[in-house]
């Protein structure tokens, strides 16, 4: 475990804490895409299939349970909590996310390291995670004013995979970890999708003004 990896996981965890904080304290999920949250549940379910068959460390198992539990909890809040579900921006969260699932399945069936169920589903989870943020980014562009916690949530979510890329570079250079096309390309695409969000987020932070994405 290197520093980049730990920072990446902590940033990812922090993004989820910020989102839960927003939903629980403000009792609102305005500006949050339920579709992106649902895609994350699928990502974790298909990536952590080895949760009960392979043991790496307490940390690894604990984090998998936390990510699974919180992502399912967030979807539950947004779908079924009597107060929160009223605040869901249903009319604006219009991205056709089933299309992303289909694309990822097809790509995982075409490009994978081994053709077995676990490996193909793991590969699917990497492809799906790379594009899972799209419904959320589209929703942000439609939102007139993005509240601070939502902006922070998306920023942290983008930052975590950027830190993972540094972790892969470190492992490749220092631990002579083998070159991994699939996670690395997926991670690069994932981080690249945040590029313009990062630009506007940092600009709004520097100019101390409200975050606004161009429509």
């Amino acid at each position: 475990m290197n520093l980049f990896r730990l920072l990446g996981d902590m940033t990812h965890l922090l993004s989820i804490v910020v989102l839960l904080l927003k939903i629980r304290t403000v009792k609102s999920c305005a500006g949050i895409s339920l579709k992106t949250q649902e895609l994350y549940v699928i990502v974790f379910l298909t990536r952590y299939l080895d949760l009960f068959t392979k043991y790496y460390s307490v940390y690894n198992t604990a984090m998998k349970l936390v990510f699974l539990g919180t992502s399912i909890g967030i979807v539950w809040y947004m779908r079924y909590h009597k107060v929160v579900k009223q605040t869901y921006s249903k009319d604006e969260d219009t991205f056709k996310h089933y299309f992303l699932i289909l694309l990822s399945i097809i790509l995982a069936l075409l490009i994978h390291r081994a053709f077995d169920v676990i490996e193909v589903l793991w590969t699917f989870s990497l492809y799906l995670e790379a594009v899972a943020i799209l419904p959320q980014l589209v929703l942000l562009q439609k939102s007139r004013n993005i509240d601070t916690l939502t902006g922070d949530y998306v920023f942290l979510l983008g930052a975590y995979r950027a830190l993972y890329i540094l972790n892969w570079v470190y492992r490749f250079l220092m631990e002579n970890h083998k070159f991994r096309w699939i996670p690395w390309i997926s991670g690069l695409v994932q981080t690249a999708l945040y590029a313009d969000f990062f630009y506007y987020y940092i600009k709004s932070w520097k100019n101390r003004e409200k975050l606004k994405l161009p429509a």
């Binding site: 990896r5 996981d9 990812h12 990536r47 080895d50 392979k54 790496y56 460390s57 690894n60 984090m63 998998k64 990510f67 793991w122 993972y164 972790n167 631990e175 970890h177 996670p183």
Partner: peptide
């Protein structure tokens, strides 16, 4: 060992 290293990430 290889498998262990391979999928030890989240």
């Amino acid at each position: 060992a290889k498998v262990k290293k391979e999928k030890d990430e989240l």
